[in-house]
């Protein structure tokens, strides 16, 4: 997996990243009201997309693990959760950076933002769970939590949205007019980030696999010594 795919994918990623940066900073026009600040939007949305995609992959890999009991599924779920956490952290950092100059506030309890925050907490909980035990037990139990966490996301989103329609948010988060070029840039950015995610996922899964085989070797050496 490592030798065959990682280099071509890495080169593809580098090219895509450069094009993406060009599109964001030179191709896409400046937004009239927000100015240069709006450029953060392309990173923000793309990170959010990857953050949610990563949870979906955790969900699928968890089902796969419970079904087939192959450690590889657990490795994928774990890698995906770790990467997802990083991207969601990026969303939570870029969000306030963007919101502050535009809406004059760092944080707003908007459904999307709040759901993202809850998602971040679920990722943290998942990682704590993954590091809390060992062996088959840990893998199985985190797979179960991975599934429950995914089912929980729509519940969180709709409850917050409903709560917010009853008590409307003072600051509306919509109201940006996207021109055609902006949409093209956004879509390209999302695509690039997805490739970035896949790249990281392959690498991380591989490292986890190597780490567990090192542990296995250590155990064998330990047994041999006795």
């Amino acid at each position: 997996m490592r030798s065959k795919w990682s280099y071509p994918l890495l080169i593809l990623l580098m090219i895509l990243m450069l094009i993406n940066l060009y599109l964001i900073f030179f191709y896409a026009p400046l937004e009239k009201n927000m100015g240069i600040i709006q450029k953060i939007f392309y990173f923000h949305i793309a990170s959010a997309w990857v953050g949610f995609l990563a949870l979906f992959i955790v969900f699928l890999a968890s089902i796969g693990y419970l079904w087939k009991r192959r450690p590889v599924f657990d490795n994928i779920a774990r890698a995906s959760a770790e990467i997802g956490t990083i991207f969601i952290t990026m969303v939570l950092v870029t969000g306030p950076l963007w919101a502050r100059p535009i809406w004059n506030t760092w944080w707003t309890w908007d459904p999307r933002l709040t759901t993202t925050l809850v998602l971040w907490f679920m990722y943290l909980a998942y990682i704590v769970l993954q590091s809390g035990g060992e062996g088959e037990n840990r893998q199985r139990l985190s797979a179960i939590y991975g599934i429950i966490a995914f089912i929980n996301v729509p519940l969180v989103f709709f409850s917050i949205r409903w709560w917010r329609t009853i008590h409307p948010v003072v600051i509306s988060s919509s109201g940006m007019n996207l021109s055609g070029k902006m949409i093209v840039t956004l879509v390209f950015s999302i695509f690039t980030f997805t490739v970035l995610y896949l790249n990281l996922l392959l690498l991380r899964t591989d490292i986890i696999k190597l780490a567990s085989s090192i542990n296995l070797l250590k155990e064998k050496i330990h047994e041999f010594n006795y």
């Binding site: 907490f121 679920m122 704590v128 929980n152 519940l155 969180v156 709709f158 917050i160």
Partner: peptide
């Protein structure tokens, strides 16, 4: 583990 699930 429980608090995120308890949000809704």
């Amino acid at each position: 583990l429980m608090f995120p699930l308890a949000v809704p």
